[in-house]
Design a binder for these strands. Structure first.
Length: 110
DNA sequence: AAACTGACGAAAA
DNA sequence: ATTTTCGCCAGTT
């Protein structure tokens, strides 16, 4: 069985997010090929948030809002990680989002 | 087996 | 422009 699992695909993409960058669920979903399954992307991250290989803290919604911060062990953990990478977070949302946004397809050249 | 849920997103009102 | 509703798909109950 090939690792064509939805989750695995998501992990691969998120894992490729460069330092100091963020991406959106929809972009990842699109990179996978399931553009309409943006929800599934976040859903898949549920198990990913505990994996160091999957920097879920670099994944935010299309709004640049740290939607998943509530799912992290620490309430402030996600924000701290982002700020630690040079990303400024204001009111649980990424500032200069467009500048730090990273398109998975841009690197994976789908 | 059916219904509900959910880190989203886009369209409709 | 803002608020509301629907769709998506897989996992859980």
């Amino acid at each position: 069985m090939l690792e064509n699992n939805f989750y695995h695909k998501v992990y691969e993409i998120v894992r490729q997010i460069p330092y100091g960058r963020v991406t959106s669920y929809g972009a990842i979903a699109k990179a996978i090929g399931a553009a309409k399954s943006a929800r599934m992307v976040g859903y898949a991250m549920n198990g990913a948030s505990t994996l160091e290989d999957v920097p879920a803290h670099r994944v935010v919604n299309r709004n640049g809002l740290l939607t998943g911060k509530h799912h992290f062990p620490g309430t402030q953990l996600m924000r701290q990680l982002l700020e630690g990478e040079g990303i400024r977070v204001k009111d649980d949302k990424v500032e200069n989002f467009a500048a730090v946004f990273w398109d998975p397809m841009s690197n994976a050249k789908k």
